[in-house]
């Protein structure tokens, strides 16, 4: 299965429509593992398995179901799912603009970028520039991965940056855990403010590296020096030479070739 980009569609505000593609703003780090069979180091594939028939099921045999009781399901097709919000599966329609500083970061979920598709460059640039100058972000809703998200679109250095937001209903009320109340000790607060001022700085994310990733890389480096990597048996598990008739036909050609010499 191959496809281009995560999503492609249109972003619109009022009557202006801009063709865009959604791209990732988060890429996994360099260290990623593959699952192998410990017996022979052959790579493992993720497949769906039917426990009833005890066999692997191909993608064409898989349907989506909603459970209404133990072992009882309705089937829901892709088309039905898309029909829930058809207008939002291909369009990010900005319904209003807000000041992004009003958005509590608690709402931030997952970031992406939008890049213009052919013909949309100018209107894209305009929307980015206008949001940059006004400090505004657009609010929209659109469907990605079978889910409708509330999203904010802002300009980040001339690029439209989209961030999915949690719905208000998903943000849990802090309730009484923060309502501890009580007097604030002015002395203690003053001491803390001093501490804060002493350590004021600009946000520099590059100064913080994932220690785990570094030690993983160190481990891999060390292992690479210790012994050579293992290799999967290149399908040599298949003992057969190939179909007998093919072998026989090739052998016949081979004999002819040798006689011609």
């Amino acid at each position: 299965m191959a496809m281009q980009g995560i999503w492609s569609g249109t972003i619109s505000f009022s009557l202006v429509a801009i063709p865009v593609q959604l791209v990732r703003a988060i890429e996994p780090g360099r260290v990623s593992f593959r699952m192998l069979h410990s017996a022979d180091y052959s790579p493992l594939r993720r497949k769906m398995f039917c426990p009833e028939e005890e066999r692997i099921v191909s993608p064409e045999e898989i349907v989506r179901g909603y459970e209404i009781g133990p072992g009882r399901h309705f089937l829901i097709t892709d088309e039905e799912l898309e029909s829930v919000s058809p207008e939002r599966s291909r369009t990010i329609e900005i319904s209003e603009f807000i000041d992004l500083r009003e958005v509590d970061p608690i709402y931030y979920d997952h970031p992406y970028y939008l890049v213009p598709e052919k013909g949309g460059e100018k209107a894209y640039r305009l929307l980015a520039e206008v949001m940059e100058r006004t400090g505004k972000a657009g609010l929209a809703r659109f469907v990605l991965d079978e889910r409708e998200h509330l999203v904010a679109v802002r300009s980040a250095e001339g690029v439209l940056a989209l961030i999915t937001l949690h719905y208000a209903g998903e943000v849990l009320p802090a309730g009484d855990i923060l309502a501890a109340g009580g007097q604030i000790d002015a002395l203690e607060k003053g001491r803390m403010k001093k501490e804060i001022k002493k350590r004021m700085s600009r946000f520099d994310p590059d100064a913080y590296a994932d220690g785990r990733r570094k030690s993983l890389l160190d481990l891999l480096k060390k292992k690479a020096k210790e012994r050579p990597p293992v290799e999967a048996p290149a399908a040599e598990g298949e003992e057969t030479e190939g179909p007998a008739d093919l072998i026989a036909a090739l052998q016949k050609s081979m004999r002819k070739l040798k006689e011609d010499r």
Binding site: Q4, R24, S32
Partner: peptide, 25 residues
């Protein structure tokens, strides 16, 4: 470095394809 992934820091004009590997990744 042996890399099958396209590095994350890439210009928007660069053509890419999204593949699903055997492991589902």
């Amino acid at each position: 470095f042996f890399e099958k992934r396209c590095p994350g820091h890439r210009p928007a004009w660069l053509k890419t394809a999204d593949l699903v590997r055997d492991g589902g990744e």
